[in-house]
Design a protein around this nucleic acid. Structure first.
Length: 153
DNA sequence: GCCAACGTTGGC
DNA sequence: GCCAACGTTGGC
């Protein structure tokens, strides 16, 4: 059963254009246990991901990506030269996990956070309720509503 | 740049 | 195990 997710990224650190250029991205650096559990256990190949730019002007959903690799240990955690080292994690006992994603398509129209907040059907989104979670589930209904919005004028 | 919300750490 | 202190995220 295909599920839907929303991944947040600050465009100054990793943007939609970076993803397009890389073609496939390791979604590394997630250091939150709730998000880690989703990456490790729930997010599977072919699931679709809404790509969200946070700390942006405006913060908005930019497009859709697809999961191309199931959860596996985030090796940047034990690379002390990486941007998110965690000395407690090791290849023998990994703490943090990631998946790989690839871009599917950019929205013809970005969906900003303020627009999302204005739509009653989207009022229960994790993005609205618990904005800080960087990897979050999206219901099928929410996904459809957002897709329709992105295709409207 | 401010600050509210949230998660983590560590003393007790 | 509680909770105060602290650090981070991210909207505004």
């Amino acid at each position: 059963m295909k599920r839907h997710w929303l991944f947040k990224s600050e465009p100054s650190s990793y943007s939609w254009d970076d993803l397009v250029q890389d073609e496939v991205a390791e979604w590394d650096g997630v250091r939150n246990y709730t998000a880690r559990n989703l990456l490790r256990d729930a997010i599977k190949i072919d699931d679709l991901v809404l790509f969200y730019h946070s700390n942006s002007k405006p913060s908005a959903i930019i497009g859709i990506a697809r999961v191309v690799k199931n959860g596996y240990p985030d090796h940047t955690a034990w690379d002390l030269g990486s941007e998110h080292p965690d000395p407690k994690s090791s290849p023998e006992n990994p703490i943090w996990y990631m998946v790989d994603i690839t871009p599917v398509r950019k929205f013809t129209r970005e969906i900003s956070l303020s627009e999302i907040k204005a739509v009653p059907e989207l009022s229960e989104m994790v993005l609205v309720k618990q904005s800080r979670l960087s990897v979050q589930p999206i219901t099928h209904q929410e996904f459809e509503v957002i897709l329709k919005l992105s295709e409207s004028d």
